[in-house]
Simulated assay, not measured.
Amino acid sequence: MKTVFAYIMHWSVIAAGHFKFLRPVIRKGNDIIASLAYKTYLKHGEAGWDKFWIPAMTKFGEIRAPYIKKVMNIDVNDPAQIGRFHDFEDPIFGVTGHWEMTEDGHPLRVETGCELCDHIMKITNGKGCPAFCEKVVYALEMGTGTAMNDTYYVEIDGLLAGGDDSCRFIHKLKTTNTSSSSEA
């Protein structure tokens, strides 16, 4: 079921990339997914996502990576290039943002608006649920990035769903010297 879900997500996002009139449908679908995941969270905590949501989103990332790599002409040895999956998905998902660099030279995606985060804030009565992005969205991003380069990783440094003024995703590659440092 997870794989079927992942393929449905993948093909629907591709369709919405080609046909803009489908984007509101995708965004409503994302709202439904977030609502279902939040209900799971209320009942079982973060561990409730382990059986379906995290593996399904990881699989979605793995499935979509080759397509995004091809259409975006991504250099898989550059974390800034790998992170360009945001540039592919953000217009489809209703996310606004821009690119910056961290002080130590890593590519940083700053997302200043997100329809899904707006929905999360609505269904939580303004409390937010940063764990959704920290776990479920993170699984999608890691699934996508590591399918392109197994040394890729992303760090989250701020979330709209947690009340921050932006979501901040730092894209990195592990170096061969140590797994704790990275190259830009």
Rank of each mutant, 00 (worst) to 15 (best):
K39H: 13
F60H: 07
Y7Q: 05
A34K: 00
V71L: 07
I63G: 03
C114N: 02
D150V: 02
D104F: 09
Y38Q: 07
E141Q: 09
M121G: 03
S35C: 08
V71I: 12
Y153L: 10
F19L: 15
F169V: 11
N77G: 13
N30I: 00
K127P: 11
A147P: 05
P66I: 08
T96S: 03
D157G: 08
G162F: 09
D165R: 08
H119R: 01
G17W: 00
G105F: 03
S182T: 14
D78E: 02
I74T: 12
T151K: 15
G143F: 06
I54N: 06
A16G: 09
A131I: 12
I123M: 06
E100T: 12
G126L: 14
G162E: 11
I26S: 09
T178K: 13
P91W: 03
R64Q: 04
M121L: 10
T96W: 06
S166C: 14
Y153G: 10
Q81C: 06
F85M: 13
N73Q: 07
I123K: 15
R109P: 00
W11H: 01
V110L: 08
T112I: 13
I26W: 11
L159K: 02
D78H: 05
G162T: 12
K174W: 14
E100K: 08
L22T: 03
E141N: 10
P55M: 06
D31L: 04
A131M: 07
E62N: 05
I92Y: 00
V25T: 11
F19R: 05
K20N: 11
A6P: 09
I63N: 03
R109Q: 05
I156D: 07
D118R: 08
D50Y: 12
L22R: 04
D164L: 11
Q81Y: 01
S35H: 14
V71H: 09
E46D: 04
D165I: 08
I14A: 02
E141Y: 14
K39Q: 10
G145L: 05
D157L: 05
Y153I: 14
P24V: 01
W99G: 06
C129R: 00
A34M: 14
F132Q: 02
L116H: 04
I33H: 04
Y138A: 09
F85E: 00
H171V: 01
L160D: 03
I63D: 00
P91M: 03
A65I: 01
K39V: 13
G83W: 10
S181W: 14
M142R: 08
K51F: 00
I33Q: 07
G94H: 03
M9N: 07
H18P: 02
K2Q: 06
H119L: 08
G128Q: 11
L159F: 04
A65S: 06
P55W: 02
M101F: 12
M121S: 06
K127W: 02
I33P: 00
F88M: 03
A47C: 09
I92E: 04
N125P: 03
H171I: 02
H106Q: 06
Y7R: 09
W99N: 04
E103T: 07
P79L: 14
E46V: 15
P24M: 00
K43T: 10
